[in-house]
Write a protein that binds this DNA or RNA. Structure first.
Lengths: 109, 109
DNA sequence: ATCGTCAATCGTCGATTTGCGATAAAGAGG
DNA sequence: CCTCTTTATCGCAAATCGACGATTGACGAT
């Protein structure tokens, strides 16, 4: 934390941006979920298919299964997608509310 | 959620993923520009003020000048903002077309 | 010409991300 | 029971990010 000791008499006097700060982190977090080509493709895939087994996602991407699993974990932690266990498989689907939240936050920029 | 049959889902007969791939990278790149709270705040600041000197941005954020400069560089490289040298100061402003590009890409997700 | 201000860049540090192979865990099926 | 399939997780390595102080370069003013 930079604590400037140098005198700063009359430069800034604007405590106007408090709600800004709150949504800034939320937007950053959601944007970050989509800030990787592989994750963009996963999100698009889930939107277009509405539901998708993990194996299909892996087959769709030029990445190793473990890497795709990592991206899925990141997307799940961000709340953008959800995964339901279905026997030995896992069925992922988009979380519409989170996606809408991202859309709104970006649109209201 | 509509669940596919447990049998093989005949889904992959679609050579449609060429434009997907192209915009996936573009979206990821633009999303990454706003995937940090400080950069979100910078972008918002520039939108609300339309133009802003670097010093003001530094004063607005709880970060060192060099760190803010880094974020400005990232935003500039992504095309989201532009900087014009004005004497010893540098005046930054938003790049509306890039911002719109991001908004469209997110909205069309 | 010299000084002070403003912003970019350099070098460094620690933390995080990204990718992979290998392994473990959980069911389904023979 | 054993085996196969499917997915998550565990290291591990390379790369990148984020933050900072210090320095540099550019410009205006004195």
């Amino acid at each position: 934390m930079a604590k400037k000791k140098t005198a700063k008499p009359e430069c800034d006097a604007r405590p106007v941006s408090l709600p800004d700060d709150a949504t800034a982190e939320e937007l950053a977090q959601l944007a970050w979920a989509v800030a990787h080509p592989a994750r963009v493709r996963i999100v698009r895939l889930l939107i277009s298919r509405e539901a998708c087994v993990c194996g299909e996602i892996v087959a769709e991407l030029p990445l190793a299964q473990s890497t795709v699993s990592q991206h899925l974990k990141i997307l799940k932690e961000s709340g953008m997608i959800q995964g339901e266990i279905d026997g030995p498989k896992v069925c992922y689907c988009i979380n519409a509310s989170k996606l809408d939240a991202l859309k709104k936050l970006i649109a209201n920029l």
